[in-house]
Amino acid sequence: MPTSLTINGSSHTVDLPDEVPLLWVLRDEIGLTGTKFGCGVAACGACTVQIDGEAVRSCQVALGDVWGEVTTIEGLGTPDAMNKIQQAWVEHQVAQCGYCQSGQIMQAAALLAENPSPSDDEIDEAMAGNLCRCGTYPRIRAAIHTAAGNLKEA
């Protein structure tokens, strides 16, 4: 049965079993490959997207359960029009392999929407579920602080 979704402000209709996780709908059906597959069990955070502004692991949200508008990394900003969080990521030269960074940025965006001035401890708590095998954590933390400052000025 076709399912309708709103992703990054656009409507999409897909014809897939209800239990297919949102991650794979995004990647293999819609072609939005910015959201990454890392573990499939909500243990790494690489697949983080937002549903109605809440950060969720898209590998654990079944297509049939998507309850609101989906925002992916592609919806946050583009290379020519980056969001302030993405700009901070570039300013701090955060990414190494870069594979986890879409998830990191989506998690950080949800944090900053809820808490405009997070402390180090609050950042650590919010980001604890997002793994980075390259160990970019110090730069992620710095970029979140910079983004917080720049978002307040805007």
């Binding site: 959201t35 592609e74 955060v94 870069g98 940025i105």
Partner: peptide, 9 residues
Amino acid sequence: DMVGKSTGT
């Protein structure tokens, strides 16, 4: 590669 890796592209 930084902009590409910060924008999912």
